[in-house]
Design a protein around this nucleic acid. Structure first.
Lengths: 202, 202
DNA sequence: AAGTTTGTAGTACAGCTGTGCTAACAATCA
DNA sequence: TGATTGTTAGCACAGCTGTACTACAAACTT
């Protein structure tokens, strides 16, 4: 007998493999069951519907990312801590490249699938909060402007933009170029710590 | 009799409507034909395959964006020109919000659909080139750092990141907040025109 | 030991898909 | 006039989809 929770994980991983190889629309109940080496009936024993399976697969990805972040060794220097956390979120190796592609597919699907929307928003909020913390710490150390919410939003957008670009053009956006891009942004934040006048925008 | 080119456009617009309302996977030959008020047979007269229809619909979106950019009135001041071009690329109104959602769906699909990949890369290259031009002009006027390729990449990622965020959370990312975010970035570029030392990154 | 729950498999069903095919109608040209 | 071409419609086909259902074995409970 296999642990049910473990079997659900195996099925979630089968979903992710199929999604990455053939696209989200190929992640049918049949294809996922075959990928996992199970029958349709078995799969349905663990997930009552396809939607449930998809939600669980997405949740698995989110959990994995959060676990990795929580496992980072403590780093007192805010600049180095920022770089490490952000590097952990970028698709620098194959495992995270896969997660990134899956994230993109789920994000797109969540535009029209209410069940996935809540999860997507959860991931969005978590990433936004993480960026806020990073910028707040940098700002407190004089390494970022004082307008923390604005800089957090900018960092968040930059991070997701880089992730999308890396998914689209993995040949151009190598691990090194992504890391460098983030490092450059953090450097730039440190050189403009003075609050700017908000009256001459537009 | 209707102009064939015009009818193809009508069908492409039907694709975009269905995609935005029900998701890309609902943009089947049948649904699109019904949306356009035509029979399946008629649709197939204009597009020999579903792939052809999709590619044409994507191309329509790209053409529309390029047309809008080309129609911008000339603006001598590089800072204001940058802001205007970038505002044109952000999902600030309903029409461009629709385009943005469609772009996201196509981008996701292009991960596994070779026919769309070429178009997606074309759009990516065009946007990248546009960002490069903007930054180069700003840099020449002393309003941006001298490392133009790096800053172009940063601006490009920021732009796409904001677009993704706006698609995910249109309630948070209003037209005003998007415009402000870009304006703030352009301001920030102007305050750090000195080239930075590349040796202490990481 | 009997009964109950849990896991696995297989099948059936209605509904959708893309595509190929045929037929009818309109317009143009010889 | 007849013939050809362009346009619209509709159907048939094979194949896939999610879900419901039954059947059977293994494990656990009482």
């Amino acid at each position: 007998m296999v642990d049910p929770a473990e079997r659900r994980l195996l099925l979630a991983e089968a979903v992710l493999r199929v999604m990455r190889r053939d696209g989200l629309e190929q992640a049918s109940v049949r294809n996922v069951a075959r990928e996992a080496g199970l029958s349709m009936g078995s799969l349905r024993h663990y997930f009552a519907s396809q939607s449930e399976l998809m939600v669980f697969a997405f949740r698995t990805v989110i959990d994995r990312i959060e676990l990795r972040l929580a496992g980072l060794e403590p780093e007192p220097d805010p600049r180095r801590r920022a770089q490490r956390v952000l590097n952990e979120l970028l698709p620098l190796d194959d495992e995270r490249r896969a997660e990134n592609e899956v994230w993109l597919a789920f994000t797109s699907r969540a535009m029209v699938d209410p069940a996935l929307r809540a999860l997507r928003d959860e991931g969005y909020d978590a990433l936004r909060a993480g960026c806020h913390t990073i910028v707040a710490d940098l700002s407190a150390a004089g390494l970022a402007p004082t307008d923390v919410p604005a800089e957090a939003e900018r960092l968040h957008a930059l991070l997701d933009g880089l992730a999308v670009h890396a998914a689209m053009r993995p040949d151009i956006h190598t691990a090194e170029s992504l890391t460098t891009a983030i490092a450059r942004h953090l450097d730039a934040l440190a050189t403009e710590p003075a609050p700017r006048d908000a009256s001459d925008r537009g």
